[in-house]
Design a protein around this nucleic acid. Structure first.
Lengths: 366, 366
DNA sequence: TTGTAGGCGTTATCAT
DNA sequence: ATGATAACGCCTACAA
């Protein structure tokens, strides 16, 4: 009557011991009559085993925490779906610790994890402060990091190579006939901000071009819009004819800013994003973007985690997902755009059978 | 050495009893010397109280579950951020149960909640099956539902009125000079699908217009694109000049489909979405949309929950958030578009000072 | 096959 | 102010 029924009451009702109840419920051997009585009592009382008791005894909660800096960024939702995919069937629940943009939050969260809320942690941090790394290593549960980490850190890691991703984008823009390529970066004190900046600089050096770098103050759409207004203030002579944005949200912001200023994409400005989020192909014009396999990285992270839980002693691994350029409308080659200057409003399918098709979903791997 | 330190080891190290350790850690009175010794031992051993033990004793986990059908839909991310906002400071963690699109998942999740994983549940279900409602009511923890529920269900509810939202959108399209208004709906067996359909039918009746209804098979971008191809197959004479989509994702799909078919938005086709997700203002053209206050609903849900936890006995409440039309470019009035037919590519700011501005962020409440 | 009993880590009562 | 001890709900040797 008072509160939920416990195993004791079930045992009493069934006229057996609590051990028998537990056994029946966990599929251990028991006489069929005992099983009957226990099951009857269970449905009778509406008994549901309490997770906490079990967790305390077994020492595991069957919860996996997933921590990111910004759930508002679709790339993390996709990553999370990947994690869910990879976890499905393992009987675990997902504990999502999003935390706003406060950088101390992630650290606080990691610390709170050492209270045993979760059996494991998958984390994709924007910044890798020494404190964070130390906290992760000290955690009493398995940790998988999605992102770049120092080489010698004893953790399982899922990486991609966003530096190479930027280089892919740069080469593609060169091939599509652009020469004044600018880079809109997010905060350079983040791991992706740093890697992508390096990629851009390397690409520029290789091409013998001086690429302009614009700093946005976040990886958000709004930051991208603000960054665009910086571009607009550049004298027309030096104004870029192409932009690589450090992620899709920035790219969306740039495209919106450009549209508001009356600039035509891709005719006057080519744009390439990074992450290939679900909205990249939906925008008009659709956004060319470098996929970093967010969903796959999530799935792999889950797999690494399950492997480690199964065999805690195995050596730490680093898995890699290669970046993949997905060419869409926003970076259509100039040669394809030239023939029909008078009809800009038509769908921008290039009439010229050039290397890169601007059709929605073609992709090119490198 | 073996595993994490427990309160027993701390007590031994400090030379006091476990009761004293517990007291010090929970801020009960203790002699200052005792406090010193305990704190020293704690830092010394790196002791962190184990959540499971505490939960078992206290009977509460400090976890709140948030369940939705599709985390891929940004409206739910926003709702979740609202929940987080509202929960912050309460010391609770958020357990996000997303579950793919399998409708049985939500039910399974709700059942699993009765295992005591969480102290409370906030749920925003697409479909309200009798089984689900029954399971929710039977749950031994407080439940707040975001969405429509039967009137007499003994639960706290946060509602909006998406039926009225559709009517807002319809009226706005009439004012912007459209007459052949179609409605792209999601599955009609969902609560929003049903309410929005009713709203459309009511609006059509009031206007004396026969509105065409197109069924999409989901609330997704892809479903919206497919729905658009149905529209394209309509004979030119009866083809709509405006579309209300049952949510933003469908609207994005429609706009993408329309763009691929060479239709111009808003000149040839006006589009209005529902939810006013973060990408509505970013798209080109930016999407007019009816905001249902997802973030605010999340915040309110959290508040209702905290109130109920504080005082379990209080009567159940239903809070309402009014829909709010946000007018943007995708539904610019025809009169504003007419004057300059030769320059369609310029930003679509209307030259005519009409009722509804098409500037990005203006909103009109009703 | 079944029951008894101990323990997982914590908090809280009740003596001292 | 402090310590011994009993729960909390469950699982699992071990003994019968």
């Amino acid at each position: 009557m008072s509160g939920r029924p416990t195993i004791v009451e079930v045992a009493a009702q069934a006229g057996v011991s609590i051990a028998s109840v537990s056994r029946v419920l966990n599929g251990k051997s028991a006489r069929s009559e005992t099983q009957q009585r226990v099951r009857a009592a269970v449905t009778d009382l509406g008994y549901v085993p309490h997770a906490t008791g079990r967790a305390l005894k077994l020492g595991s909660t069957l919860q996996v925490a997933f921590a990111v800096d910004d759930v508002g960024n679709p790339v993390y939702t996709e990553m999370m779906q990947g994690v869910e995919d990879g976890l499905s069937g393992s009987g675990g629940r997902l504990l999502v610790a999003s935390t706003g943009h406060d950088p101390t939050d992630l650290l606080a969260l990691v610390h709170s994890l050492s209270r045993g809320y979760a059996d494991a942690l998958i984390i994709s941090p924007l910044r890798r402060s020494p404190e964070l790394v130390a906290a992760l290593v000290a955690l009493p549960v398995p940790v998988v990091v999605i992102g770049q980490l120092g080489d010698e850190v004893p953790l399982d890691v899922v990486r991609t190579d966003s530096r190479a991703g930027v280089i892919l984008a740069h080469r593609h823009l060169l091939e599509s006939g652009r020469r004044r390529i600018a880079f809109v970066n997010g905060p350079p004190d983040t791991a992706p901000g740093q890697a992508r900046l390096e990629g851009f600089q390397e690409a520029c050096a290789a091409a013998g071009l001086a690429g302009r770098i614009i700093q946005a103050d976040g990886f958000t759409v709004t930051a991208g819009e603000a960054a665009w207004s910086q571009v607009e203030s550049i004298s027309p002579r030096g104004r870029p004819d192409a932009v690589i944005a450090a992620n899709d949200l920035l790219a969306f912001g740039v495209m919106r800013g450009a549209a508001s200023a009356g600039r035509r994409v891709p005719r006057q400005l080519a744009v390439v994003g990074i992450d290939d989020t679900q909205f990249a192909r939906v925008f008009s014009p659709s956004l060319s973007s470098v996929s970093l396999g967010a969903r796959e990285r999530g799935r792999i992270a889950a797999r690494l985690l399950l492997d480690r839980i199964a065999a805690p002693g195995i050596p730490f691994r680093t898995e890699r997902v290669a970046p993949r350029l997905v060419v869409r409308e926003s970076s259509a080659p100039l040669v394809a755009l030239a023939p029909r200057p008078g009809v800009p409003s038509r769908p921008r399918t290039p009439r010229h059978p050039s290397i890169a098709s601007s059709t929605s979903n073609r992709s090119r791997t490198s």
